[in-house]
Design a binder for these strands. Structure first.
Lengths: 334, 334
DNA sequence: TATATTTATGAAAACGGTTTCAAGCCATTG
DNA sequence: CAATGGCTTGAAACCGTTTTCATAAATATA
């Protein structure tokens, strides 16, 4: 397949200089006589030379690869963060290698091993279940950044939104519209995020002196079907409600469909709010109100922070603020 | 940062064998005495050894990296294919490196260069604008697979759906429901896919003896806003229509919203069909009919084909079949 | 039993770069 | 003018593996 590869030595011969000089002009690491520099550059052009990253990685000790571990490729939030990272790395000298942890501790660990074998220069872990201790150990080995997690001992390496606040804000938003019977479709209970959002919901209720009714809470799974089931279930319990707060947009979409099936109008009879503000949310009928997490931006921020980290700069991760994209699925309770 | 790395030499010393032997047991390349093999294995465990992929890539000539170029990270179809590839590669010895070509020939070429520098063992290009000649040259250098493209001279390396047929089937589906005034929201005209889908639409019309009305065709951009604009425009032209065929789901979502704004009911007044069958399509109100392209499966198929290619096996890419997920956004024209 | 073949093993040579080190050159300084 | 210092440069060592090659041991063959 591959024809004889051009190496740095070929360039050196062609330009009548030594390998060292070629390396120097290629990396701008040491001043080089202009004539020689030019000769080298011409040689590179003429021979169509492409440096071998594996070799330079081995020799120089920097693979110029950043490992990125994401979860359940296909889930809106994690995908968006990942895209942000990739986008940020494009046109830098670094390339990302992606592994999927699928929210399974063992698979995550295997993925990390794969990355370490590849001598990644830095590691960005988005979500996941790996324990604190292991993360600390990793952080001691490689520049590490955590997105969507809050790990004590690594606070300055964590980029996350305050999920309690998201739950609180979303619920408070509904309460301020006059709603008091608010269904909450949670995320997967095993995820910290879900629990925090639920707690935010509970806190907002308490603050407004609304008694907690567990029949209004349904454990969902961050997906469409569970959103449908949530509404069906709550209705079958004979519960009245005037608003629904879903732990993410996909389950809100499911809820929306179920309400439609039951002939319940949105927003005149029931208000609906989701989280994520997916691309599709503004195109639902009616356009859906959603809490916006700046996922893509967070990915970009993580990427940039990693680049800084690799240049030994101080990093200062932003605390991303959430805001509610108010649309037409929410209205005053009459 | 990195503490002293354990190398194969350390293992050799610890196990009282030579580096060569260690390499042999690690790769199962040559039989090795059981006692020595065991000693090596124990050493690996005891010292917690992780082989350096860069070094083995350099020495062995296989980087075990597969380059994947996708387009506009964030676009449903391309993302899904990409995910399929990544999913397929998980738990193999190969890792993917991703670059985004953003449908820009120059950026695409740069991306490919990045990948080649990294000594990728194989290349999967999803979509994009790179010319045939260049692709042929690439194919001569590396195992190459093309997804979503049809390139003569590389037929056996192309995995794509018949976009003409998609357009034809979607339109025919509407015609068979009795529709004769069918709006078509195209994709970006510069993309082959869009043109083919449009041609399929035209062919279906002609076959049914429906005169072509250019006012019913709007050039969209595969996104929500252009879907909205399409409907607004056609309506402002004073055109009557009873069905809309959008070149992808996102623009169909946009169309859906615009119809809602204009108080036009779906499907009783206007039927709507999209392409992609995104995760969200079944949760639109009403659930949206869409032509399903098996994007994820195509990604997996591409990944598997690449693995076969790398083992010098014959590959036989499937011709993915499309089918219409019939839901409730389409109905008989009254 | 002597010879031919096979098998397991280690030494050393790649792989394609980067980096250290010392030397050579030139200009500056006292 | 000799000595000092700063630049540029090439030779060689190194990065951590795989792989070739030769050797030594073990087995099969005659």
């Amino acid at each position: 397949m591959d024809p004889k590869k051009i190496t740095i030595q070929d360039i050196a011969d062609y330009a009548n200089v030594s390998k060292s000089t070629v390396s120097r002009v290629l990396n701008n690491t040491t001043p080089v006589n202009d004539k020689k520099r030019e000769a080298v550059l011409r040689a590179v052009k003429d021979l169509d030379f492409e440096p071998n990253s594996l070799a330079s990685g081995l020799a120089g000790g920097n693979s110029m690869i950043i490992g990125v571990q994401t979860q359940k490729i296909g889930s809106p939030f994690y995908d968006l963060v990942t895209r942000g990272v990739i986008h940020c790395l494009t046109d830098t000298r670094y390339s990302p290698i992606l592994v999927d942890g699928v929210w399974d501790k063992e698979i995550e660990l295997r993925g990390i091993d794969t990355l370490l074998r590849r001598q990644i220069d830095g590691l960005i872990i988005i979500g996941g279940d790996i324990e604190k201790e292991h993360l600390l150990r990793l952080a001691a080995k490689k520049p590490l950044l955590l997105v969507g997690r809050e790990v004590e001992g690594l606070q300055d390496r964590c980029l996350y939104v305050d999920n309690f606040d998201i739950g609180y804000q979303a619920t408070k938003f509904l309460i301020e519209l006059g709603h008091r019977k608010i269904v909450h479709i949670t995320g997967i209970k095993a995820h910290q995020d879900s629990v925090r959002r639920l707690n935010g919901y509970l806190h907002a209720l308490k603050e407004a002196n609304i008694p907690y009714d567990e029949d209004l809470v349904y454990e969902g799974a961050f997906d469409g079907p569970s959103g449908v089931k949530a509404i069906d279930t709550v209705i079958s319990r004979g519960k009245k409600f005037t608003a629904v707060f879903a732990a993410n947009d996909m389950s809100a979409f499911g809820a929306r469909l179920a309400l439609y099936r039951h002939g319940i109008d949105v927003p005149s009879e029931v208000s609906l709010i989701g989280i994520d503000d997916q691309t599709e949310a503004p195109y639902m009928t009616p356009p859906m109100t959603s809490v916006r997490q700046p996922a893509f931006k967070m990915g970009v921020a993580a990427g940039n922070a990693m680049l800084d980290l690799l240049m030994n700069k101080e990093i200062d991760l932003p605390k991303p603020s959430v805001q509610i994209s108010v649309r037409e699925s929410t209205a005053k309770a009459e």
